[in-house]
């Protein structure tokens, strides 16, 4: 089985989000970039396929040279080879087109992407790829088993879960549940050393349309001070929720 894990390079979850250039750009100053958490679960699941069933695992990112530490980390965790499409990932549509090209030329059976990239929260890249390549697709995927050509997936739905039967080639939008938090791998010294020898293929972008453009950013309005209610006076909270906030 040939697996491609799509990796978005995102600000660490603790990052403060600021904007520059008259609020038209995300300020990357002092921001630590990491593998998108949803993709990290997917990468670990891919390693399990490799170890238990035999698979080749490639990782791909669409991004400029600055994303290489993130992709090297994926190699250190155990991916066999990496592909970087050398372009600024301007929007989800552009990224999906680039990844669709990588998938077409690489002949992958299984594509593991994340449900959502935690930076721009698009939640669109895997679905777009599925449409562009007419592939089977399962989103919000929390479990995936593969036997031969057949795949059994579980996806999260509002209020529960749904079991899905499908087949390869398949793309998923994965999240926690594919593996647990405690299963995530931290690169060790040997992995980091080995990663240096592994292939990181840089390919140029092909055409590509930017369908959307973020023209301006804004930070949320600062929050007013909290109203504290004495624990001996809980009636007051009920009163505030009813008469002031009008939510009960």
């Amino acid at each position: 089985m040939k697996i491609l894990v799509c990796i978005s390079n995102v600000p660490d979850t603790t990052s403060k989000i600021n904007f520059t250039d008259d609020d038209t750009k995300f300020d990357t100053n002092g921001v630590q970039f990491v593998i998108n958490p949803n993709d990290e679960f997917g990468l670990t699941r891919a390693m399990w396929f490799k170890e238990k069933q035999g698979a080749t695992v490639h990782v791909a990112t669409v991004g400029e040279a600055t994303t290489e530490p993130t992709i090297r980390k994926a190699l250190a965790i155990g991916a066999d080879e990496a592909i970087r499409v050398n372009a600024a990932p301007t929007d989800g549509y552009f990224v999906a087109q680039q990844l669709a090209e990588v998938i077409k030329s690489g002949g992958y059976d299984l594509i593991i992407a994340g449900r959502e990239s935690i930076d721009y929260n698009g939640g669109m890249v895997p679905g777009m790829i599925a449409a562009m390549l007419d592939m089977n697709f399962v989103n919000t995927c929390i479990s995936l088993e593969i036997e031969g050509e057949n795949a059994t997936a579980v996806r999260e739905i509002d209020g529960g879960k749904e079991k899905i039967a499908t087949s390869l080639p398949l793309i998923i939008g994965g999240q926690k549940g594919l593996v647990e938090e405690s299963d995530l791998r931290i690169p060790n010294m040997r992995g980091i050393m080995m990663a240096r020898q592994k292939k990181l293929n840089v390919v140029e972008a092909v055409g590509g349309t930017q369908a959307t453009k973020d023209v301006k950013f804004e930070r949320p309005a600062p929050k007013g001070a909290v109203k504290l209610v004495d624990s001996a006076n809980i009636d007051e909270l009920v009163n505030l929720l009813h008469n002031e906030a009008k939510v009960i």
């Binding site: 549509y93 890249v125 679905g127 919000t140």
Partner: peptide
Amino acid sequence: TDSKFLAGILAGKLSAGYAP
């Protein structure tokens, strides 16, 4: 969850930009 599931597929099929 269902609408977000189909949104990407729809956008890909219609070559449409999608703002979530």
